[in-house]
Design a protein around this nucleic acid. Structure first.
Length: 625
RNA sequence: GGUUCCGUAGCUCAGCUGGAUAGAGCAACAGCCUUCUAAGCUGUGGGUCCCAGGUUCGAAUCCUGGCGGAAUCACCA
């Protein structure tokens, strides 16, 4: 049993013996002792003072004495006001470290096998062909997976900073859930159809003169995005005279010939006109090739790709069924609606007058499909907070329809990435392009590293790899360390820092430790766990051990809250504490062999926790930097 | 106007189910490389935790009401 649980149980027992009363588990508050006090774990005794009818100090004294008697790991205690600070024995910490080193060996081995087995799925090709699971065969399984949807790009524009936050969050949350022993399926729902796609297609047809990514020397997603912009500028040109003639903006937009042509193209697409399909497919392939490159660089992948062109007709049948059952209602004009009065929400349109679907209808359909494919215990949607209302409605409509997965829908809503002068606006050209940003990060990593003269003995290949790791580490950490639900600010003028609370700082700490371990050598490392028995544990070591001790709990909390920020802030603490320890004490030059062994073990385990935690953020750590 | 989220140091952010004197980084200033990587470490200054009530032994945290900001409330996606 975990030590906290044993202490909590002992406290409950002691109070029951003294008073005959039971304390509820949530009254037993145990927390890591604050740095400024002596001790490892603190029990807050205020909840018990009434029961025991003694002042806080006396209560704490009594509990401290009793706990010391009952639990061998409690070595001593100190009372400060109503706080009982328990200190664990050196033996406790050393056995913790010993066990961790041993278990980590196994765990890392297993983890490598698991991740090594998972092939990265490309956005086109295999992903689509991959056979989905069968809900019925999974129904009986105790281990139902969590499906995490993220990325979900449109195929008419390249990825930007907002998508980066989405992708990093999705990938990290999936990793964290996996680490908390969930089965996870990462899915991407690609928005590859609709009027916006037709716009870039139309612009390419009219103005493209057969241009291709090869002929233009551009990534496919960039090329297609340029035509989308081209459409908008040409449209605006057509709107001007209409507006001068007295039309409102919306009306002008509708009336403009270009818009009419785009609508016509959409109709032809829906009729599966071979010529249109041909162009559509070609242009989408260009985009996918571009996205694949960006995803690969970002280090994200998916187990399954859904395409809206396959799923956009889903949901209709479910709505019709709901209509027959009288759950939904039809208006005089033929449109179908869900009444959500009972949830204090407005009524929601599900089928238009002409019988076609809206976005919501599609989402009902894809939720249903996803349930059939995986029978998940939870369906996580990593989508920006601008769609909070949408997901609230989706959840309620599905609930109203009596679907078993209504409770499984979870919108992981994240805040917008803002620039110093507000939101990114594509019209104003203030969008921060994903590829450009990554380029800049890697370039900064290069120049900073070269200035520091750290890579003299690196091969070119090693250098490239290192710069990529550091640049991406800085970017990923910068984004993931902030609470997902909060809006965050990104200032392109001040490039992302490499000092202080940053990815490179943590990567650097890892590299430092690895350097020490390399110096120690394999043999020395293997012998160290057995050699530390007689070593005393000093305060800094104890502090670091205490922090490392909480790692599994932090992972569970991060999984529960789906918050990579928890991991990021934790691993920063680890690195910071290690650096203090490293500064104050020598590991290999320590004269006392047992102490040296202890420190070696401590360093080794710290490196592993850093590597593991950073992996949960999708960040690699280097051996040298 | 309704709903949801946010408001903590000059700036960017932590602060776990309520717990000790509210913490980091950046920026500023002052120190530390003959010793395992100075992308590091140490120190100084910097706070009306938006405001006002309430609950509690105890509130940045929970409740109510304000103020400020963001998002959203389409027969768009």
């Amino acid at each position: 049993m975990k030590t906290e649980n044993r202490i909590a149980a002992a406290v409950t027992d002691i109070i029951r013996e003294k008073t005959g009363k039971d304390v509820s588990p949530n009254q037993v508050v145990l927390q890591k002792t604050r740095r400024e006090f002596k001790g490892d774990l603190t029990l807050v005794v205020f909840p018990f003072v009434k029961m025991l009818q003694q002042p806080p100090e006396a209560t704490a004294e009594m509990l401290g004495e009793a706990l010391m008697q009952r639990l061998i790991e409690v070595d001593s205690f100190q009372v400060v006001k109503g706080f009982l600070n328990l200190r664990f024995s050196d033996a406790f910490w050393k056995s913790f470290l010993f066990e961790k080193i041993r278990k980590e060996d196994e765990r890392i081995h297993q983890h490598e096998q698991e991740t090594g087995r998972q092939p990265a799925v490309e956005i086109h090709g295999e992903g689509k062909a991959k056979q989905a699971g069968n809900a019925e065969s999974l129904q009986g399984d105790a281990e139902r997976p969590v499906v995490v949807e993220y990325s979900s790009p449109n195929t008419n524009k390249p990825l930007h900073l907002g998508h980066i936050r989405n992708n990093l969050l999705g990938y990290s949350v999936a990793s964290i859930l996996e680490a908390s022993s969930k089965k996870v399926v990462k899915v991407n729902l690609v928005n590859d159809r609709g009027i916006h796609i037709c716009k870039s297609m139309l612009a390419w047809i009219k103005y493209g003169r057969g241009e291709t990514p090869e002929s233009a020397g551009k990534k496919g997603d960039k090329l297609v995005g340029d035509y989308y912009v081209k459409f908008e500028t040409e449209l605006r040109r057509q709107m001007k005279p209409l507006m001068d003639a007295g039309s409102g903006e919306d009306e002008a937009r509708r009336k403009a010939p270009l818009m009419q042509e785009a609508q016509e193209l959409l109709r032809r697409w829906e009729a599966r006109d071979p010529e249109v399909m041909q162009i559509w497919q070609t242009m989408n392939e260009w985009v996918y090739a571009g996205f694949d490159e960006t995803y690969k660089r970002m280090g994200v992948d998916f187990d399954k790709i859904y395409y809206e062109s396959d799923t956009y007709l889903l949901g209709r049948d479910i709505v019709m069924e709901g209509l027959e059952k009288g759950i939904l209602h039809k208006k005089e004009d033929g449109s179908v609606w869900a009444n959500l009065d009972e949830y204090k929400l407005d009524e929601k349109l599900l089928l238009r007058t002409d019988g076609t679907s809206v976005y919501m209808t599609q989402d009902i359909g894809t939720a249903d499909l996803r349930y059939k494919d995986y029978c998940p215990e939870k369906m996580v949607y990593v989508v920006g907070n601008e769609q909070n209302h949408h997901f609230q409605v989706l959840q309620k409509v599905v609930e109203k329809l009596g679907k078993p997965y209504a409770g499984a829908i979870y919108h992981l809503s994240y805040g917008m990435v803002e620039l110093p002068d507000g939101r990114m606006k594509s019209r104003e050209g203030t969008v921060v392009d994903a590829d450009d940003l990554m380029d800049e990060m890697v370039a900064t990593a290069r120049s900073t590293t070269e200035e520091l003269g750290k890579t003299q003995d690196f091969s070119d290949e090693e250098k490239q790899h290192l710069y990529h790791i550091i640049g991406m580490g800085a970017l990923k950490y910068f984004i993931l360390k902030v609470d997902p639900k909060k809006n965050m600010l990104f200032n392109p003028e001040e490039s992302i820092d490499f000092n202080g609370n940053t990815g490179p700082f943590i990567q650097y700490t890892h590299a430092r430790i690895r350097s020490v371990l390399r110096k120690a050598g394999q043999q020395r490392q293997a012998m160290a766990p057995g050699g530390m028995k007689d070593a005393p544990v000093n305060d800094k070591e104890r502090q670091l051990l205490n922090t490392l001790y909480h790692y599994p709990a932090v992972v569970q909390e991060a999984a529960g809250e789906m918050s990579p920020a928890r991991i990021a802030n934790y691993v920063y603490d680890v690195a910071k504490e290690f650096n203090q320890f490293y500064h104050d004490y020598s590991i290999l030059n320590e004269e006392d062999k047992a102490v040296s062994d202890l420190r070696l073990c401590l360093a080794a385990h710290t490196a592993r926790v850093i590597r593991d935690a950073m992996a949960l953020l999708g960040i690699e750590v280097p051996e040298k930097m």
